[in-house]
């Protein structure tokens, strides 16, 4: 239910810009659309506010949508296909968890160092790896994720090692721990809206156009005077900072983190990219659409099928990936826009 409701939210917001060709909207128009999406998602959350199972799925959906949007800044707009965003996610999670457990620093405050640390690490590791292009960059980021996994297991004093970290349950707004799951969902929705606004701003800013230019042709972009490395690094820093915040929220929501939860490739690092791709990579709302489809679907499959057929959810996910790559390269947003071009325009 939630899927269809919110999907139509995306389409209807497209309608407003129907007279103008898509791609020439202003930041203010996007803000209006985002407000519309927020209200629609809030309404859906409200309807299901009594069902903890569905609320759990929604919290995860909104969080993954938000982080996937962050990924999209460098991965989609900039075309730097990072599969190592799990590292920044984990940095955010471990920073916040450590500050909260050892120094009782409120997670709200800990979001700042989490974001800064994630951005700093991202810039430090991207500096050399941005020399690589296309698939080589992706391989290096995957390697990065593997190294982070090894290090997270090795440095047990910070990460709790393989046993992980458990965050004690102390409910309260200042601890970012809620007794009601509804409030957690609202927090995730708030983060999603923040990410949407940042993405819309980047998309319609000079930085966003630079990123899109170097995505299309890096040499041409450099020739026109864009400082390619600097633009990539700024894009990566923004993307990683938001991803770090996402990791922090994830840690406070689950209250238990360990290396496999934070640094699993199919469940975290690659999933951010896959959600964006399924929704429509490089589009503003693609990652949101992708998350609204994939996360609930996977949760349902995991709950329904995995008991009888182990790994069934990942079999379906794998098949979806191949089918989207072959037949729906532009993702859900691309399909919606195609349908709009074919049928919507004529009826006007």
């Amino acid at each position: 239910m939630s899927k269809t409701d919110t999907m139509s939210g995306v389409t209807s917001t497209r309608d407003e810009g129907g007279a103008v060709p898509p791609g020439i909207t202003t930041f203010n128009t996007e803000l209006l659309r985002i407000a519309g999406i927020a209200v629609a998602l809030l309404a859906v959350t409200w309807v299901y506010s009594g069902d903890p199972f569905i609320l759990n799925i929604m919290a995860q959906t909104f969080l993954f949508a938000a982080v996937s949007l962050s990924w999209n800044i460098i991965g989609g707009f900039g075309g730097q296909f990072s599969l190592g965003h799990g590292v920044f996610f984990a940095i955010g999670a471990y920073t916040t968890a450590n500050l909260y457990i050892n120094w009782q620093i409120s997670p709200w405050l800990a979001l700042i160092p989490a974001a800064i640390l994630a951005a700093l690490v991202a810039v430090a590791v991207s500096w050399p790896t941005f020399r690589l292009r296309g698939p080589f960059f992706s391989i290096a980021t995957i390697a990065l994720n593997e190294v982070a996994f090894v290090l997270a297991n090795y440095f047990g004093s910070i990460t709790g090692g393989p046993r992980g970290l458990t965050i004690p349950f102390k409910a309260g707004l200042e601890n970012m721990i809620f007794t009601s799951r509804f409030h957690s969902v609202l927090l995730m929705l708030g983060f999603l809206v923040v990410c949407l606004i940042v993405c819309a701003w980047v998309f319609r800013s000079r930085l966003g156009y630079y990123l899109q230019a170097l995505h299309l042709d890096e040499d041409a972009a450099r020739a026109t005077g864009i400082r390619v490395l600097q633009v990539k690094l700024v894009g990566m820093a923004i993307s990683a900072a938001l991803t770090g915040i996402g990791g922090a929220l994830f840690a406070m929501y689950l209250r238990f983190i360990d290396p496999p939860t934070l640094l699993s490739l199919p469940d975290i690092g690659v999933k951010f990219a896959l959600i964006a791709l399924i929704g429509g990579v490089g589009t503003l709302y693609g990652p949101l659409a992708g998350a609204l489809l994939i996360v609930p679907l996977e949760s349902q499959l995991r709950a329904g099928l995995s008991a009888s057929v182990p790994g069934a959810n990942l079999i379906v996910l794998g098949a979806i990936l191949i089918l989207f790559a072959l037949f729906m390269k532009k993702g859900i947003v691309g399909l919606v826009m195609q349908l709009w071009d074919r049928f919507g325009r004529k009826s006007q």
Binding site: G134, P135, L277, G311, I315, L317, G318, L326
Partner: peptide
């Protein structure tokens, strides 16, 4: 699977990762 995606490195990554998930979990199942 791959020939239709010849000039699209991102979609290739996407498709081969899909195959990875598919093969791994079919064998697991």
């Amino acid at each position: 699977i791959l020939q239709p995606l010849q000039n699209e490195p991102m979609m290739q990554i996407f498709a081969t990762f899909g195959l990875l998930l598919l093969l791994q979990n079919v064998v697991l199942a």
